[in-house]
Simulated assay, not measured.
Amino acid sequence: MANSSVGLYNFRFELINKLIEQGFEVCISLPESAEDRNVKLMINAGVKHIQTHINRRGMNPIEDLKLIKEYKRIIRNINPEVILSYTIKPNIYGAFAASKCKKPLIMNITGIGTSLMNSKSKQLVIKLYKYACQKSKFVFFQNESNYSLFTSMKLVDYQKTKIIPGSGVNTSKFKPVNTVKQDNIIRFLFIGRLMKEKGIEEYLNAAKNLTNKYPNVEFQVLGPFEEEKYKIILGESKYDRINYLGISNDVRNEIVNIDCVVNPSYHEGMSNVLLEAAAMGKSLIASNIPGCKEIIEDGYNGYLFEVKSVTSLEEKLIRYINLDNKEKDLFGENSRKKVNDEFDRNIVIGEYMRAINRI
């Protein structure tokens, strides 16, 4: 159960293939239809697809009750041996439904999001997560901070938890590509949904300031518009070195042509954007938050800056701009080494198979 075909295909497809290889029948519950590109790829691999309506960001109780009923209907029809859930609504409402149907569920806390930051909904979400964790058979966390939060608040029994290195990264798919630089332009890239919480405002403000000061820098933006105002902001941009690239079916095509990936997000589970860029041997700059600081060692393979601070971000961007080419190359080499040692996706798949086999 997941809330996006993009996340399921990009970050869990190797696990799906492993389950199919082991003789499991795999069904996926997603909001996208069978015509969606990523859904088609998973169906072609041998999965059964069930379209399930999910309003990812809404807090409408009637819609959410409908989702619980839909999950219960799906579980009763499929009669699964085990259920895997990702992201907040599939986690919480999937656990409700699985419990009612007496089926084991393995939950993955991919990040705490705004639900545990926003005071209006915080107490409600805490209660819902506590119930869901109690009803889950096993709970994976993607970083130490989220794990500590849940265990300190007694939302989950630590004995049925495990911290994994995010979603891991496919180091065979994402790998360095030797290219010859045709100019002296330093290219930065933001990858993500265009919304305030992803830090797009800080990125654009820093980009505007630095393109005025440095003639040899370019800032790129890649991803869908989650909030419409950014479509207007980027559409009206008068800066010829701030470029919106649209949406990509394979981010390797964009990552290969840049020098450094920037992730100014306010919160992360474990940043897949940084992991994939690191695996391709790129330098990294990101907010000093859980889910980013595990991937970046400041001064080793990139820089960390103060979250929500344009000034701090600019300082680190300038520091990177002033590095010589050998220092930039070393950052990239160190990124690849760190991913190989700590974040290979096979580590995550192994932990899932162990949990599934125990059940």
Rank of each mutant, 00 (worst) to 15 (best):
S248A: 14
K89G: 03
E342C: 11
Y86I: 04
N10L: 06
G332R: 10
G168I: 06
S152N: 13
N118E: 13
D341G: 04
K66F: 01
I356R: 08
S283K: 04
E144N: 10
V169Y: 00
G7S: 14
N334D: 10
L222F: 07
V217G: 03
A355C: 12
R252H: 11
E201T: 14
Q220A: 05
L149E: 07
L245E: 06
S5H: 06
K198M: 01
S335I: 09
G113E: 00
T110Y: 02
P61Q: 00
E202C: 02
P215T: 11
M117C: 11
L234F: 08
D259W: 06
V217P: 01
T52R: 01
I200L: 13
K326Q: 15
I295C: 06
K316F: 02
E306L: 09
S4H: 11
V39H: 04
E21W: 03
S265I: 01
A286H: 01
F96N: 00
N178S: 14
E202L: 01
P176D: 12
S237G: 06
Q142N: 10
M1I: 13
E35T: 11
N91G: 08
E327Q: 12
L304T: 05
G113N: 02
V273E: 00
F225I: 08
L30G: 02
I295P: 02
T161M: 07
F174Y: 14
L128C: 06
P165I: 10
Y86D: 01
S335C: 11
Q159M: 12
D341V: 11
Y129C: 13
T171L: 06
S265C: 03
N216G: 07
K198W: 00
Y71S: 00
I296N: 02
L8R: 05
I43P: 08
G223M: 04
E144Y: 11
V251Y: 02
K120T: 12
E35G: 07
K181C: 08
T161G: 06
L210R: 08
E197F: 04
P31A: 09
Q182I: 15
M270C: 12
G166T: 05
G223D: 02
D324T: 09
I54V: 12
L313R: 04
N205K: 14
E227F: 04
Y147S: 03
A97P: 07
S4P: 05
Q142K: 05
Y300H: 11
K181V: 12
I200H: 00
I75G: 02
K137C: 11
L275W: 02
D250P: 09
N146A: 11
S335L: 12
I185G: 04
L8W: 13
K130N: 07
I20A: 10
Y158A: 14
F188P: 00
F219N: 01
L15Q: 08
Q22R: 15
Y9D: 04
V177K: 11
E228H: 09
L84W: 08
R12D: 14
C101E: 15
V125P: 03
Q142A: 05
V26F: 14
